[in-house]
Computed example of a mutant assay.
Amino acid sequence: MTRLDDLTKLRGQLADWMEEAPADRRAALVAQYRATLAEIDELTPKEAVGDSIDEIAQRRAARRSAPAKSSGRAKLPG
């Protein structure tokens, strides 16, 4: 089991404990919950992000390969 798996399990447990805890104990659990979420975010692999030029090129390529969409508007005679 990895650290990320452990943290994910802890996140669920903390959520359950926060629901059941008396009001005077919730603040500590909320603080731990937030710290756990932050650590999960740090350990979660991020998607590779290309630059804006790559993004534009991908959109253009997708438009070229997709069939043309109908505008869905009625055409006026004339």
Rank of each mutant, 00 (worst) to 15 (best):
Met1Thr: 05
Met1His: 05
Arg3Leu: 10
Leu4Gln: 00
Leu4Thr: 03
Asp5Gln: 03
Asp6His: 07
Asp6Pro: 02
Leu7Trp: 03
Leu7His: 02
Leu7Thr: 05
Thr8His: 08
Thr8Ala: 08
Thr8Tyr: 04
Gln13Asn: 11
Leu14Ser: 00
Leu14Thr: 02
Leu14Tyr: 02
Ala15Val: 06
Ala15His: 13
Met18Phe: 08
Met18Cys: 05
Met18Arg: 08
Glu19Gln: 15
Glu20Asp: 12
Pro22Arg: 14
Ala23Thr: 12
Asp24Arg: 11
Arg25Gln: 15
Arg25Asn: 14
Arg26Glu: 11
Arg26Met: 05
Ala27His: 04
Ala28Leu: 09
Leu29Asp: 00
Val30Cys: 06
Ala31Asn: 07
Tyr33Thr: 03
Tyr33Arg: 10
Arg34Glu: 14
Ala35Phe: 03
Ala35Asn: 05
Ala35Lys: 06
Thr36Ala: 02
Leu37Ile: 04
Asp41Tyr: 13
Asp41Pro: 02
Glu42Leu: 13
Leu43Lys: 02
Leu43Phe: 01
Thr44Arg: 04
Pro45Glu: 03
Lys46Cys: 07
Glu47Lys: 07
Ala48Leu: 09
Ser52His: 09
Ser52Lys: 13
Ile53His: 06
Asp54Ala: 12
Ile56Gly: 03
Ile56Cys: 01
Ala57Gly: 06
Ala57Glu: 15
Ala57Tyr: 07
Gln58Gly: 09
Arg59Asn: 07
Arg59Met: 11
Arg60Tyr: 10
Ala61Asn: 02
Ala62Ile: 03
Arg63Tyr: 08
Arg64Val: 09
Ser65Cys: 00
Ala66Arg: 07
Ala66Lys: 13
Ala66Asp: 04
Ser70Asn: 15
Ser70Arg: 15
Ser71Ile: 02
Ser71Lys: 09
Gly72Met: 01
Arg73Lys: 12
Ala74Asn: 11
Lys75Asp: 12
Leu76Gln: 14
Pro77Leu: 14
Gly78Ile: 13
